[in-house]
Amino acid sequence: MPRIVLPGDKLADKPLRIDNATLEDGKSYATVPGLFDDEKESFIPLESVWYPRMEDSVIGIVEDARNGVYTVALNSPFKGLIITRRDSNGPELEVGDVVESIVRSVKRESDKIILILVRPRNLHEGKVITVKPSKVLRIIGKANTMIKLLTEGTKSNIVVGMNGIVWIKGGNVPLAVTAINRIQAEAHVAGLTERITTMLKESQ
């Protein structure tokens, strides 16, 4: 059974390969609230800052557009960069546009970290909400089960960025927002899928 741990709690008397752990004198300690399974040595963060990985699908807002180079705000400490070639047939982006893209690489510039983003797709007219990055996997669900449930129950088009930005268009947008907020609030309580199923059914 996993146990709830908070920053500073000892996870193991040995080094563990866990992002949300810190090592001191050969022992591992939690750095964020999470669920730790002592047997499997697995850690599920209950709160965390999104830390980018290659191939993460993200949603951002275009902040700056100059000569085909776009700066994208990502609900993250780090900015994204989309670099388009003049001859490419990628979308024309404007400041304020909501754009979905893929993290190609995480670059350490002289003074900060920058994410190179590729395959941009402009998302129009939807509603954008932010969620906790630690809840994104729960909103998507194992093998996309939860996101399928949401899409079918609301008839909305929903795109979830790993960075905690969600775009919702069409169908019952307010219901989709309520359901996503409920998933965030109850992510750690068993039987979530059943409760969301019931909620979506009752709201139809």
Binding site: G8, V32, E47
Partner: peptide, 11 residues
């Protein structure tokens, strides 16, 4: 800070 998910060695 701890409840925001900012990583900390201790509270």
């Amino acid at each position: 800070l701890a409840s925001s998910g900012i990583p900390m060695r201790d509270i």
